[in-house]
């Protein structure tokens, strides 16, 4: 049945409002990042202003953001690779052998408040002289990405027919050989989904780096606070910093939309 004309008009209007409400604030942030602080304070210059790159020069050169971008990238990349290496075989085992209790233990990490781990971590890692290094940041971000990888990959392996593996065994592969040569190559889309989601969540993570990093190893979400002073806020610099953090991740989401959506909704419809 075709939708009625009245409904179609309503849908266009309603969805336009939704899209504007979701996108306009982000565009506002990006616009402000190209304004001088004088223009930001002048509400008359909301839309008409002469763009300036000063804020970006400030962020990238004076505020040392190139280094923080590097930190964020390295931590996100390393935590993701490590989580995939540990998480993919574990998810395979948990899916094939129906290890419900073990899966539940890993997924508990999604439930536990991060603060309750930070105190013991801080104590142990400062004794090991690791606080402030990037190793401890990578470990802490794995706390977020490993459960994510296990959760997404378990769903993926559940959906792969067991016959594939049985055929490989008949062809003379060992169980581990079948996993390595048949199941792994076939699960590349799932691994991509898990990897992308893990990178996004690690890049966006704030609390662990807030406690465990120092002035040299801090990641972008922590570095944003450099522009917030006790007495005043450098709005132009702050918005440029916020844009530098947010836009790369939005571009990734734009290009690999399908993977991001399937990762975010993984397991939601199994009932």
């Amino acid at each position: 049945m075709k939708a009625s004309p009245a409904y179609r008009v309503f849908r266009v209007v309603a969805l336009t409002v939704v899209v504007l409400a979701l996108i306009a604030p982000l565009l506002w942030m990006i616009a402000a990042s190209f304004k001088t602080n004088v223009d930001i304070y002048d509400t008359g210059k909301a839309l008409v202003f002469s763009p300036t790159m000063d804020n970006y020069v400030k962020v990238l050169q004076q505020a040392n953001y190139v280094q923080f971008i590097g930190n964020s990238l390295w931590v996100a990349f390393a935590a993701t690779v490590a989580s995939l290496v540990l998480g993919v075989p574990a998810a395979y085992s948990m899916s094939r052998f129906n290890m419900k209790k073990s899966a539940l233990v890993v997924l508990m990490a999604r439930v536990i408040p991060g603060v309750s781990l930070l105190v013991p971590w801080y104590y142990v890692f400062s004794n090991l002289k690791m606080v402030g290094g990037s190793g401890v940041l990578i470990l802490s971000h794995m706390f977020v990405s490993l459960p994510l990888v296990v959760y997404i990959m378990m769903g993926y392996f559940d959906s792969m027919p067991e016959e594939l593996e049985e055929a490989a065994l008949v062809d003379g592969l060992t169980h581990i050989g079948a996993f390595r040569r048949i199941m792994l190559p076939l699960s590349v889309p799932g691994i991509a989904t898990a990897g992308i989601l893990s990178i996004i969540f690690s890049w966006n993570n704030f609390m662990f780096a807030l406690v465990l990093s120092d002035a040299d190893t801090k990641t972008l979400p922590v570095a944003i606070f450099d522009f917030v002073g006790y007495a005043s806020i450098d709005w132009g610099g702050l918005m440029a910093a916020a844009t530098v953090v947010t836009v790369p991740i939005m571009l990734i989401a734009l290009f690999v939309q399908k993977y991001v959506v399937s990762g975010l909704t993984a397991g939601a419809t199994k009932g």
Partner: peptide
């Protein structure tokens, strides 16, 4: 695509 944008944006930003 528009719906995805707030979702992936860094919460601190």
């Amino acid at each position: 695509v528009a719906i995805l944008m707030p979702l992936v944006a860094t919460p601190v930003a």
